[in-house]
Nucleic acid binder design. Sequence first.
DNA 1: TTATTATTACTAAATAATTAGTACAAAATC
DNA 2: GATTTTGTACTAATTATTTAGTAATAATAA
Lengths: 123, 123
Amino acid sequence: MEPRSLTRAEAEIMKILWQLGKAFIKDILAQMNDPKPAYTTVATFVRILEKKGIVAHTTYGNTHEYYPLISEQEYRKYEVQQLVENYFDNSVTNLVSFFMKDDNLKKSDLDDLAAFIEKNKSK
Amino acid sequence: MEPRSLTRAEAEIMKILWQLGKAFIKDILAQMNDPKPAYTTVATFVRILEKKGIVAHTTYGNTHEYYPLISEQEYRKYEVQQLVENYFDNSVTNLVSFFMKDDNLKKSDLDDLAAFIEKNKSK
DNA sequence: TTATTATTACTAAATAATTAGTACAAAATC
DNA sequence: GATTTTGTACTAATTATTTAGTAATAATAA
């Protein structure tokens, strides 16, 4: 399942699906912020996501319960990779040093990261 | 200058402008990968970027030399913020701990990061 | 059992993004 | 000075994205 970037509207729906695990259209709609789109708008996007192979459904009578085919972890990984590739010359270190410059990183974060690296060096 | 997300094509051109500092259309085109778009396509996007207030130009005779009004640093920061906001619950720590899960870091990343952290421990 | 409600499938329409051609003007060349 | 080249501005056409209405159908309620 090769991930592609989700559009803004698609991402909004996926986030709800990831959170709920599975949902009917009305459940998705209920989670959306005001101003809520029309029921049929949500249904359209879910159908688009299904056509793209990112969502599937189970049928219960005449209704469908939708669920994601890609995990949030998987997609998040893809997005991070995209960012690192596009703006940090493919180097995670560049991203980390970007955070350091901006003082966005707590010292404990760095310590944790150092410990993690130490632990994984053996492999 | 409030940054907005750049579209794919816009980002491609901005990256070249950031790299060159300033450029004529032909310079931008020269930097693009094959298959290169038409000269006029590049000109169109530069005009769009200008209308959006992201690019400006200096006139030399009948030609324009274009330059960015937003720095790459500034935009990069915006993009990172967007990612952290959308997928890491607004926490940089969450992003760092994301890297500390198996499989999210390449071995070369591990080595680089180790060196980087070692060097910065002193501070 | 008819009317209402809920749901999906299809259609459509507006806007954004992508791509490039044509017209025109200025500059360079012959 | 006429012709070719170079560059911008305008226009246009295609595809993607966003949004939602309508038709059809099944389930539910009156």
